[in-house]
Amino acid sequence: MRDLTDLRREILRDVLKCSYCAMCEWVCPTLDVGNGNRIYGPRGRINLIVSYFREGSENGVLKESIYTCLICMACTQQCPAGINIAEDIRKFRTFLTQ
């Protein structure tokens, strides 16, 4: 099993490629249901992951955001930066079950 530090580095390396262009958002079913609140969309989730790793903050919003993701991969195929968004969110769940 990979060390959590390695996993953190691996996820961060990928999500930091995000330029917040929002190309991922128009296909996201959960952003739609979350009334446009960005914590329910891929860009918001990536932002929260970065904040968690940098500031170590964990709160109800983080879990709400990460656990409403369907891991449906719709966002991943839209990302012009090639970020594996769905997989990063899925792997990040490891940190919420520790």
Partner: peptide
């Protein structure tokens, strides 16, 4: 470009999942 049915989160958030299914 298919749109998820919402099923994968049915156990964690039945309400949210159901709303995606409706849409």
């Amino acid at each position: 470009n298919t749109y998820c049915c919402g099923g994968p989160i049915e156990s964690l958030s039945p309400t949210f999942s159901a709303e995606i299914g409706r849409r």
